[in-house]
């Protein structure tokens, strides 16, 4: 039940003292967080507390103004764009609230894309994409385009695309935000079960405590800051 028990030692990903402002608006004002291998962590807090900014900085999508993000021994804040895009293709995966699939591609092509970009041949990529679509119960929608999918189906296809590369970390920003509560819970059940099976860590941003309860623990943000516990954790 509790994967943190088996995940002591060095954190997989650690942010320390992050500051980030957009224009004159501060988003992060000294946020720290750690993610261990295979751990599912929820980042919660009121709207505007910096949850998404923390996720973006930790995923290497946004560079912080100050502070460190360490992925193992690697400084993400100083990594080259090439290295960051390689990480995003092979070791990190992202799931957003909506709008992450390419509208012109079918579900199976969307899921295959990260593999094909990584050099996998199309036939193998399609085979793996099909098995992930099956796992998430949307194999019958493989040839549908995103516009033809329900919200729940679209998120399942997005999960398949996130997990198809076997990432070490899944960054999920309000992945159930556009779904009704039952569909949201189903997506969370599937995401957490698949991540635990793969041994992937999940950093989950949510404003909803019932969604945060799928995680092993919670990081609480207030006004761009995390509690004292996170600094020393």
């Amino acid at each position: 039940m509790n994967t943190t028990e088996s995940a002591h030692g060095q954190p997989l990903l650690a942010a320390r003292g992050l500051y980030k402002a957009y224009g004159s608006t501060p988003a992060l004002r000294g946020a720290s967080a750690q993610l261990r291998a295979g751990e599912i962590v929820a980042v919660t807090g009121p709207s505007g507390s910096g949850k998404s900014s923390l996720l973006h900085c930790m995923a290497g999508m946004v560079r912080p103004d100050h502070g460190q993000v360490m992925y193992g021994d690697e400084h993400l804040a100083h990594a080259s764009e090439d290295r960051l895009s390689e990480l995003r293709r092979t070791q990190f995966a992202v799931v957003f609230q909506f709008g992450q699939l390419i509208p012109e591609l079918t579900a199976v092509d969307n899921v295959s894309l990260p593999l094909i970009l990584g050099g996998t041949d199309r036939r193998t990529a399609h085979g793996q994409a099909h098995s992930w679509l099956e796992r998430f119960g949307v194999l019958d929608r493989a040839e549908a385009r995103p516009g033809e999918l329900s919200g729940g189906q679209e998120q399942r296809v997005a999960l398949a695309r996130a997990l198809v590369t076997g990432p070490r970390i899944v960054f999920a920003d309000e992945p159930t935000g556009a779904l009704d509560s039952l569909a949201g819970e189903q997506v969370m059940t599937e995401l957490t079960a698949a991540a635990r099976e793969l041994g992937a860590a999940v950093l989950l941003v949510t404003h909803d405590a019932t969604i945060a309860a799928y995680a092993d623990r919670e990081i609480r943000l207030t006004d761009g800051r995390t509690g004292a516990l996170e600094v020393s954790a």
């Binding site: 019932t210 945060a212 995680a215």
Partner: peptide
């Protein structure tokens, strides 16, 4: 939150 995680 701890109780909610257990129930989940």
């Amino acid at each position: 939150m701890q109780r909610m995680r257990e129930l989940t």
